[in-house]
Write a protein that binds this DNA or RNA. Structure first.
Length: 525
RNA sequence: GGGGGCGUAGCUCAGGGGAUAGAGCAGCAGCCUUCUAAGCUGACGGUCGCAGGUUCGAAUCCUGCCGCCCCCGCCA
């Protein structure tokens, strides 16, 4: 995909920089806060002062004199040596035209090196419904996958069900107890949904707990898939931990690390010497009683993923799983893989107004509850609009009672307003008119649209889909301001054509941005 | 004790080497005979946790300290 409109400006400045001896120094353009500082500004002359051993203002003056582009109307030197650019009407026209030409592809293809990337996300135990706490994983992980795909990577989305281990036995015991009208074990599952699931299975209460567990997890998996589909999270593959044992993959993985000399026996158990690869401590693979640990499953799972041909395996995990990073990377390395192929993204936990949530405690606030209350769009936006490194406080009451003030509606409203304008217009202009001289509000909107490709690239690079949400808000704001200041229908014909083209371009970019965070762009509200 | 994340406006949070630090919400003053007022305009609001360091320049990078959250199992 070609460079963004802003990249082309930077390239023009870059040629001037090279001409004054600063070859190879990247030119980064910023949008100055102060309009007096032009449309775009760069501090490249300040950075060149040392290597060129010259005064920044002198260098800036030489660069300014060397800049030549029909898209740059003026260049001036300011302050300690900043270069402030003003762009031409031709640039604004070209920027809008580019959006309309590329349509839904505008902003895509940012990946310098397209890869096969797997994003594994949500991945909970199939012993209870998806909670609001897990919802952040779903919203973040799905948006990240969309972002990777849009950037040009070949993405596989996977859910890993931990359907092996003691929690499954406990779930079976809890289900059977409820079916018999008894209380579940003290360390079992207490939630109300347990009785409901048990009643829906139609199993004989006398059946053994393994049968209950199997039927119960199958039922829960169905529910989880339905909830996630409702939340617009798509998965290509649903992976069962159980299958790693049934296929013998766990045994083969352990043989492999054993052959590599990374396994030893101690205290009657089999250990992985993961400390060799930077882990905090060695990990038990096979317990004294001969059963395998979760780590053994991880080991086999990593081998399975990477052997499927993914260059990178992304894990989306909550902050409480921080300790996983070292373990997973060590496991990959013990198997003989480059640990950099394991990309663990940790998101900070969602804190709710009335305390933490736990499946076993029974105080469940499910994702479905949240969706019933505020809808998919508001929920996805609320969960993805903050950086994943940032702990967020969710005030559910505020979200449910003040949903009209949720920023997501602000963005959607911009799209719906444009749709209303386009419905009233006779035919949509394919391009701005050559005579178009954008007014300030129009110019701001175009600059917002021009920024999109670079923003997508940065968001993908930093694994930060929240940047897209913030961008959607900024662009919506630029549109609402334009809308108040510039009449579209009924303006002079050339101006009307130009503004209709700008409206269409804005609608396109808003729709793309909202889609990247899993939010719909409505035609009317 | 060890490790990780965070500390920015009254609240929730962007920004992560560039010029006078931003947005939303809350609160104040205005704007609907005009393409959707779920909107717009203006004013108010700051010791970017504290102290050092790096340099032309630090909210941003480094070190130390303080505070909050999470993790440190032959659970998964």
């Amino acid at each position: 995909m070609s460079a963004s409109p802003v990249d082309e400006l930077a390239a023009a400045v870059g040629r001037a920089v090279a001409a004054v001896g600063g070859d190879g120094v990247p030119v980064r353009l910023d949008r100055p806060a102060d309009p007096e500082h032009g449309d775009y500004a760069t501090a490249v002359a300040l950075q060149l002062a040392k290597p060129l051993r010259a005064a920044p203002r002198d260098i800036a003056g030489r660069i300014a004199a060397a800049v030549a582009s029909e898209h740059i109307a003026s260049v001036e030197v300011a302050g300690p040596g900043f270069l402030n650019l003003r762009v031409s009407a031709a640039w604004y026209r070209a920027a809008v035209g580019r959006v309309l030409e590329q349509g839904p592809r505008y902003g895509s293809g940012a990946a310098a090196r397209p890869q096969r990337v797997q994003v594994e996300y949500v991945s909970g135990n199939p012993t209870g419904p998806v909670t609001v706490a897990t919802a952040r994983n779903a919203a973040y992980g799905d948006s990240l996958a969309r972002l990777f795909e849009f950037a040009g990577h070949d993405v596989g989305r996977e859910y890993y069900f931990n359907d092996a281990g003691r929690q499954i036995d406990l779930f079976g015991e809890s289900l059977r107890a409820r079916a018999r009208g008894e209380e579940p074990p003290a360390d079992g599952y207490q939630g109300e949904y347990v009785a409901e699931v048990a009643a829906g299975l139609g199993l004989d209460p006398g059946a053994d707990t393994a049968a209950w567990a199997r039927a119960g997890t199958d039922a829960m998996i169905g529910r989880i898939r339905a909830t996630l589909a409702r939340f617009r999270c798509s998965f290509d593959t649903w992976f069962l931990e159980r299958s790693l044992y049934e296929s013998g993959a766990v045994g083969r993985a352990i043989e492999r690390v054993t052959a590599g000399g990374h396994v030893y026996e101690a205290d009657g158990a089999v250990w992985l010497r993961s400390t060799t690869f930077g882990d905090d401590k060695d990990r038990v693979l096979e317990r004294t009683d001969g059963t395998f640990t979760y780590v053994a499953g991880d080991l086999a799972y990593i081998a399975d993923k990477l052997e499927r041909g993914f260059d990178t395996a992304v894990y989306v995990l909550g902050a409480d799983h921080h300790g996983y990073i070292g373990r997973l990377k060590a496991a990959a390395e013990a198997l003989g893989y480059d640990p950099d192929r394991i990309d663990v993204q940790i998101y900070q936990l969602v804190r709710l107004r009335d305390g933490k949530m736990s499946k076993r405690a029974g105080r469940i606030v499910t994702l479905d509850d949240l969706l019933d209350a505020i809808g998919v769009d508001a929920a996805r936006f609320a969960l993805v609009q903050r950086g994943h490194d940032q702990p967020i406080d969710l005030d559910l009451e505020l979200l449910t009672t003040q949903n009209s003030e949720n920023p997501v509606y602000y963005c959607q409203y911009a799209h719906a307003r444009i749709a209303a304008i386009l419905r009233r217009a006779d035919g949509a202009a394919a391009q701005p008119d050559p005579s178009w001289q954008p007014e300030p509000a129009e110019a701001e909107l175009v600059k917002a649209l021009a920024e999109f490709p670079d923003l997508v690239a940065e968001a993908a690079d930093r694994r930060g889909p929240h940047r897209i949400a913030g961008y959607a808000q900024e662009t919506a704001k630029a549109f609402h301001q334009f809308y108040k200041q510039c009449k579209v229908i009924g303006a002079e014909p050339a101006v009307e054509r130009s503004r209709l083209a700008l409206c269409r371009a804005t609608a396109q970019v808003m729709a793309t941005a909202l889609d990247l965070v899993g939010v719909e762009a409505p035609e009317s509200m």
